[in-house]
Amino acid sequence: MSNEDFKPKIVVFACNWCTYAAVDLAGTSRMQYPANVRVIRVMCSGRVDPQFVLEAFHNGADGVIVAGCHPPTDCHYISGNIKALRRYTLFKRLLKSLGIEEERFRLEWISASEASKWVKVVNEMVETVKKLGPLKPKLEVVE
């Protein structure tokens, strides 16, 4: 597949209160960004089980973003974002050992008013993943 044809799919787990609202705001503000992202709403970034991320990569995601409210105090549920921060700091190391490039995963803090940050993160992620190429063929080789 040439880079031109490669339409990466990026799965996003967004917390209901900050990031999901920021994605909504990007919409109401009519900001434009690549159509490669698919947002899954969860109540808190603390809800995002690493299994989901692995499941996404396993099934063909070229990139995954977990996004929530800014630490330390923005979390709607006091400290769910801190749990996510701890969890995914470890998880990133694990990804490497699985042979998945670290850049394919991002943990981001995007508040409800940061629609432009959301757009920036998506743009960067799509660009990064396009450079890396599809993940799926690599995984199939492993299997």
Partner: peptide
């Protein structure tokens, strides 16, 4: 918030409306 559900090692804890099976 569902943080316990994500942390539960056995899947015994589930969040209503955001179960592991539903998100997967």
């Amino acid at each position: 918030c569902g943080t316990c559900t994500a942390a539960c090692p056995s899947g015994a804890m589930q969040q209503r409306g955001f179960k592991d099976t539903q998100i997967k």
